[in-house]
Design a protein around this nucleic acid. Structure first.
Lengths: 204, 204
DNA sequence: CCTATATGACTTTCGGGTAAGTTACCACCA
DNA sequence: TGGTGGTAACTTACCCGAAAGTCATATAGG
């Protein structure tokens, strides 16, 4: 049986893995876990499906690898900023800036942790949970500080506000994906302008 | 061949259709288009799959029907509020209140128009586009007013802010879905508190 | 008896996953 | 220096289950 190109490319495993992960993260991030097909990832990477299974075991394994890569990247950065001494809105803006700088070349990464189509049980759910919790905890901590400054300690209010805050980051990331020409710096300045518009508008 | 109950229920088509649509909207809204199976909808409705195909033609047809139902509901309400004379943040809060009141019994409806797993081409995409555009246009109009009050007419700023605004509504709806015991009234009051916390925090 | 309502059982399609093999390269030895 | 065998990289062709979609038929009521 003739099998053109079988084994002829000779790309080292680690190189190939990063290449696959880069493409897979993008697909998962853009379309969500369920709507992403392994065959599509393979095709985009110019390789065959079994190679992916050989390296990552399963579709879930592939997703987990993406999560591990992106999750620590994002969570570490947020943690770094949380260790600083800014509080309230200022801390929020700093976090935004950090995310913009970090994800400029891979904006879709953010979506991995908030994919509603990912399995809700099993290893993936655990893995998502780890990072979503880590990010969520930090967000909640910052939000609680902000709310505390305003004299509000209501747990549900904090929970809802955290959800809103993550939603805002999510929206900005999605908008950024659709405006690839915008730099991280421009995004940051834009956010400052948006904030002033809100505050100014609410004071009237 | 014995087929128990075939044709014995005698439910008028229109009644059956609304019943199916109510269940389908919930499934599509909660799980997304891809993750929803027609068989599940049929089972939950206590009927067989072919009946759904008989009435709606295809899974996409079923989704479109849900969109038409939910889309006009939501868009009409937003339009109604937009015709009022409130502007800026106030108009935003009024719109939120309208959404809470309208969707209290069907909070998942909101998600139909922002489902990333829905097909991005074909009739569905068109249909989503119609309603997303209609809602998006109204949102953008309101946002532009708000930004104008703050002396900002930048088109990209307005576009980004619109995205953020829709993201906020989205977050609140999702949070609401996960807190079923919260009433529309409670949500509205919560939003007022959240807004004051943001404004207060930014003024420091 | 005709039509609307309804169904069980089937075919088709699609995507995750696998079996079995092919090619290239390198280390080792005569 | 050239053969050789082991291994890493890679492929085609398939399996299988789940879900979309269809067909032929059954029941009830005007």
């Amino acid at each position: 049986m003739v099998r053109p190109n079988a084994g002829t490319k000779g790309v080292p495993r680690l190189d190939r893995e990063s290449q696959i992960l880069a493409i897979a993260s993008q697909e998962f991030g853009m379309r969500g876990f369920t709507a992403t097909s392994v065959a599509t990832v393979a095709k985009r990477a110019g390789i065959s499906k079994p190679l992916i299974y050989n390296y990552f075991g399963s579709k879930e394994g592939l997703y987990e690898a993406c999560l591990d890569l992106g999750g620590s990247l994002v969570a570490d950065e947020i943690e770094r900023i949380a260790r600083g001494d800014s509080v309230g809105i200022e801390r929020g803006m700093e976090t935004l800036g950090g995310m913009f700088a970090l994800l400029e070349q891979r904006r879709y990464l953010w979506r991995l942790f908030f994919d509603v189509t990912a399995p809700s049980t099993g290893a993936i759910a655990d893995s998502i949970g780890v990072y979503a919790d880590r990010i969520g905890k930090l967000a909640e901590e910052g939000v609680a500080e902000l709310m505390g400054l305003a004299g509000n300690d209501d747990e549900l209010d904090i929970s809802a506000m955290t959800s809103v805050w993550l939603g805002i980051v999510d929206s900005l990331m999605n908008w950024w994906v659709e405006h690839p020409e915008q730099t991280a710096e421009q995004m940051m300045q834009r956010c400052v302008r948006l904030l002033t518009a809100i505050v100014g508008g609410a004071e009237q």
